[in-house]
Design a protein around this nucleic acid. Structure first.
Lengths: 177, 177
DNA sequence: ACCTGAACACCGTTCAAGT
DNA sequence: ACCTGAACACCGTTCAAGT
């Protein structure tokens, strides 16, 4: 009586992510996702819950795709590598990346470690991490959401580099406890 | 033959803004806005264009509501007052405020002035302003979009104060040309 | 000039079916 | 177990009407 499944959570997320990448978040609908899979919208519910859960799944998938750097560097290089890894997924999945600002802050443990090894007062690591990731996320979401659309890629790249310098300065001020 | 208008752009924007404030951006629909005004959805088109234009109108209205500070202060106080004015509207209209990240950066001329009078290299004022507003906007959108929902109001307030200190440090490093 | 009714294509979601 | 059809309430938008 059991019938072989012709779709599963994974291919649904792939289809939805493709829609988001190609046409933005508003293009991610149950109908469009189902159509891309040659199935009816109702078929999705068994596998991904409802639409809100589908979007949660996309965020989850995006977090999975972040390639965090090896820890073979000083904290400065480590920080920069993490920021660039984040920027890479932001460019790959701009629409879904913007959702990160609406989710409770998920701290990659690696960042906390980097800050402690950088010699920051343990009592201030949490706040420093929060501000650091807010600054980077704010810039990247601005970038992929079109706030810098009037500026050339070169200008935006230079701004990002400057931002990383500022973060290093930020950490430096914390180091002088 | 001309019939007296029973709605206009202004009351439509008020109704839409109220919906956004109460229930978020997804609650801002032509249907709901019209219903709130006791009119059919089709009646709105004459006054606000289509839905995208309605949202543009909300952003425009929000920018109007920002009470920029008097220039009776040093650049430090000026910067802080501007940031707090921005935060005030962010709290008043959280959903619409989040849209600012998707609009081409609108620079309040007052900020540029504040930076030049702070003694920053004119050739670097533009980039400094961009990073400054990105940092503030990124924090505020994070705050009103729920990224800090697990943290107490007290914690978020402290983070914001720390952010302002960092911006002052940022400017200080620029002053040492 | 301004609003409405009718119409169309599209949404999310449920529930009772079919295999 | 897994998918579909039918059904419902809700969307955005247009266009030909009504006043």
């Amino acid at each position: 009586m059991s019938r072989p499944a012709c779709i599963d959570r994974s291919v649904i997320l792939d289809a939805a992510m493709a829609l988001a990448d190609e046409s933005g978040l508003h293009a991610v609908t149950m109908y469009a996702t189902a159509k891309r899979l040659g199935v009816t919208p109702m078929a999705l519910y068994r596998h991904v819950g409802d639409k809100a859960a589908l979007l949660d799944g996309l965020v989850e998938k995006l977090l999975t795709e972040i390639r965090l750097p090896q820890e073979r560097q000083d904290w400065r290089g480590q920080l920069e590598a993490m920021a660039r890894a984040l920027r890479e997924v932001a460019h790959r999945h701009p629409a879904v990346f913007a959702l990160l600002l609406q989710r409770p802050a998920t701290t990659p443990g690696a960042l906390l470690e980097a800050l402690t090894t950088a010699g920051i007062d343990p009592g201030r690591v949490a706040q420093t991490e929060r501000l650091l990731s807010t600054v980077i996320l704010g810039f990247l979401v601005s970038e992929v959401s079109g706030r810098f659309q009037k500026h050339s890629e070169k200008t935006v790249n230079a701004d990002f580099d400057r931002l990383l310098e500022l973060l290093a300065i930020l950490i430096a001020t914390e180091q002088g406890h």
